[in-house]
Design a protein around this nucleic acid. Sequence first.
DNA 1: CGAAATAGCCAAAGCGCTTTGGAAGTCTCT
DNA 2: AGAGACTTCCAAAGCGCTTTGGCTATTTCG
Lengths: 340, 340
Amino acid sequence: MNLKQLSHMLSLSQTTVSRALNGYPEVNEETRRRVMDAAKHHGYRPNPSARRLATGKSGMIGYVLPTGAAVDIDPHFVEFLSGLGDYARAHELDLVLSPADADDEETTYRRIVANRQVDAVYISSPRPADKRLALVNTLGIPFIVHGRSEGFDFDYPYLDIDNEGAFHEAARLLIQLGHKRLALINGNERETFAIHRERGVRRALAASGLTLGERHIRSVTMTEENGYRAARRLLEEAEPPTAIVCSSLIMALGVVRAVRDLDRTIPGDLSLVAHDDVFPWLRPENFPVPLSTTRSSIRLAGARVAERLAARISELEEGARGEVWPVDLVVRGSVAGAPG
Amino acid sequence: MNLKQLSHMLSLSQTTVSRALNGYPEVNEETRRRVMDAAKHHGYRPNPSARRLATGKSGMIGYVLPTGAAVDIDPHFVEFLSGLGDYARAHELDLVLSPADADDEETTYRRIVANRQVDAVYISSPRPADKRLALVNTLGIPFIVHGRSEGFDFDYPYLDIDNEGAFHEAARLLIQLGHKRLALINGNERETFAIHRERGVRRALAASGLTLGERHIRSVTMTEENGYRAARRLLEEAEPPTAIVCSSLIMALGVVRAVRDLDRTIPGDLSLVAHDDVFPWLRPENFPVPLSTTRSSIRLAGARVAERLAARISELEEGARGEVWPVDLVVRGSVAGAPG
DNA sequence: CGAAATAGCCAAAGCGCTTTGGAAGTCTCT
DNA sequence: AGAGACTTCCAAAGCGCTTTGGCTATTTCG
């Protein structure tokens, strides 16, 4: 059943039927009713390919997925996706994943924009002066950044959590408990979130006249193994830190293992706080010693990003609105007063 | 630059240019050269929307993503996706994720087929007599199942690993080491892979005149917490199992924690084998006691599924070919002879 | 050598929608 | 009553491809 048939059936022109269905004003209300009813009754659904060709809009949102033999997709991605799906499902919004060579995402961005494959895109894990951001900005496709970048002469719409604030609070708590030697096991130092987190920790330390030693900060990709290695190095020093702030639960698993291997205890010898993106399959309260966390649901962020993308597509949202979510500090058994 | 302009430029008809570009035979080789060169030189790329409308092919593959407040996307998904991307990237194949209400995926499948949004779909985590399978089969869209279903009167194309064989081997090894009380911490019992794994364990036990006690099998969703709970229950029995086979690394984390909490040791009191889908961020060799595993890279499976989907789209692959991959059994420190 | 086959090209008709540029008919106002 | 302003609809022109049917040379073959 296509538009032609439907309009024939109603003895109306395609124009009128199309307009009635799409809510244009120049059609009599009663006519609109008739059309709507007939459409519903016959289960008419406009052909999206045709609509696309005519309007240039696809009704989909896009994400360029960096891939490559040496590239691993962040496990957080799947949770973000859950959230995105939560919103998109209710709005028949589909998501197009365009795999790209991690070393050349630009080609793919250009392709999807030139082809008008998607109406909007989102960008995640941005770095300072991230090229993708500058690119989509000039390409003129609606977008939202999940996270923040820095060092541009233009503003852009984003959704981020207060990474600096969160890690500032975490560090402050530890300092209040008497810890003087803090360490930070951070994510990839080139990503903005990691920079913000480091900033938060440093600021808290500075407020008490303390500093983050050169060797007391590690920036690594977030795997269990990297968490373990980083923790071992830190703890095997002559004057090991008495508290660690860690950028992910997965790395925290490694930290816990390292502490065990070295026959130390949490929180006796070491206090530990980690950031929790809220995975359903790994909960901080179920760590051997319940883990204190800075918590922010990445899933909710996904839903919000989808919502805002939809708003931008329909031009309900405009401009460079930035949104920063506060982060909860949840204190559990893994922190205690500094030893000694 | 569109076809019209290009053909004008070459003083050829759109027909000829189109045919030259798409490799049809009824065009002079020299003409084809000219066309190809001009197309490359001017950076001509056919408009996909137009092509879609004309051919009905979208050049994308689809996946219906079950979502809902209570639905969590399997963390394995992201690794599978990495593999899919590895292949798709090289072929400019995009992936469309269509979020659907987990309780009603049918509507979404019907929509994407009716709208011809994608040329092929894949289905993952199938259950016996899975409705999605019957549905896509009747809808007539090319598809591949990642995993297997059972109980249909038709065959279908799939890619699966030898779950039964893998768990048979794992159980057999443990039995050879003298274990008589095995337990299985399995995934959701309604999914085929879990059924196959259970079958494998039972078969190995039966071969030695042993059985899997009613209380020695747990089917749960794969979270750390569920692994912990299942292990505790098992280990707190009067006659606890001396070996556990576990369906995922994530659950194995919980098992390890439970063993610790009960002051037992691996492999002294308990031997442990788990299935490893090969996550980059959690490696069995890095468990407190290196974990024996049945290993199969879900990422490679993703790449293979993409490859086969592409083949089916271009009709290079047909029929109901099933492909079953063998699984490696990797023995590490977590298994030992039965205690006592 | 004439008929039939083949190679190589083209005009035009889709694909199914949206949107432009009217054209009637109806109201409103002087 | 006639001019102007709405209201309500329509025919037709896109959107940019693919594909059908046909046409003109050129080659092949009995």
